[in-house]
Design a protein around this nucleic acid. Sequence first.
DNA 1: TAGATTGTTAATCGATTAACAATC
DNA 2: TAGATTGTTAATCGATTAACAATC
Lengths: 211, 211
Amino acid sequence: MLPKKKVSTAVIRRLPKYYRHLQSLLIKDINKISSEQLSKVTGFTASQIRQDLNCFGGFGQQGYGYNVEHLYKEISKILGIDKKKYMIIVGAGNLGQALAKYSNFENKGFRLVGIFDKDKDVIGRKVNDLEVLDINDLSKFLKNNEINLAILSVSSNSAVDTAKFLVQNGIKAILNFCAIDLDMEEDTVVEDVHLVDSLMTLSYRLEKEGK
Amino acid sequence: MLPKKKVSTAVIRRLPKYYRHLQSLLIKDINKISSEQLSKVTGFTASQIRQDLNCFGGFGQQGYGYNVEHLYKEISKILGIDKKKYMIIVGAGNLGQALAKYSNFENKGFRLVGIFDKDKDVIGRKVNDLEVLDINDLSKFLKNNEINLAILSVSSNSAVDTAKFLVQNGIKAILNFCAIDLDMEEDTVVEDVHLVDSLMTLSYRLEKEGK
DNA sequence: TAGATTGTTAATCGATTAACAATC
DNA sequence: TAGATTGTTAATCGATTAACAATC
């Protein structure tokens, strides 16, 4: 199960896509798939798919292919989403509130259990069953609850300080929506969602590749 | 200016980060920077930075470094954000509305000029100065206005059809927030923001790298 | 068994890093 | 001029693709 040598980020980023397609196969009651067929739907080469999966173990059967349900479950284990993950949102502005209402998280094993802000006008407001809490109570909250992930959606200028504060209070994983780089300590993992960066990349590709 | 050979995606995705740091240098009135110094703040190696920039031309000066303002402007040209980009949001649910209110886009050269939905309850609602328009009027709107980019934030099950519709009506670049893969025609560029995928990657890294 | 398809090794390709000559 | 730092070529590293033996 545990990979012998460090698996590259490139591989990891493909896993959710496999997972997504396997899920839709499951729904369609398809219980067998070959790397060749998976290649067709994902756009990755069959060879790459087999290489990727074999970083974690032999999930297939020669001459047959992969059992969809088995592979699906194995990937969910690899991604660590077989156990529910508890998360909080820090920063209940427009984006934070929208993310709180975003139902896609919940049924993928990510359970939102808290949302925090420092703005007195926002604190106390109900967002999708959750009351926005005072960020001053966050420290206590984190002591009393086992939280795995934090979504950071505060303003850019308070992002670095807030991130530090989260880490000091035991948070080890941050999904960062702020347009700033958080260079954190070794044992903290950060995944960036830089919306403006994505738009810029898109803009480049529009001019160069498109047309 | 135009690169001789195709520049890799890896390079392109680093450009917004350079751009961001150069902007903050400009604000601090720093007008000179070496690849070595840029390496310190971005985390990329100095060698890589020089390689990246030289895909597009020699923007530096031997023995001196790079002029911050010049490099900043050149990168904005490369990214195509020296000219304002006009964009629309399709799908005015929670996420779509939050993105419409997200001010960071505007001052980076991305101007939101329309937001559309099919839901009668949402149509007509004001979101940040813009009235949510009926998606049935989108075709006409795109004929009368020069739109560069579309942000797709509809529900996953209508994503593919809506994307096709956008392309048929002349849209060439889509920022896709739907948890689905849009495999589009050659001349359309799509940038995916798969929030759940990011959470899954984070979950993996939390268990394997973190701690 | 014959056919299919994995798991895995080897070959290729591309991206990153190192080195240094060019030159400001 | 001497020192600094780019632009660029060469070396290395890592990731992808191809090939095929293993085996179901």
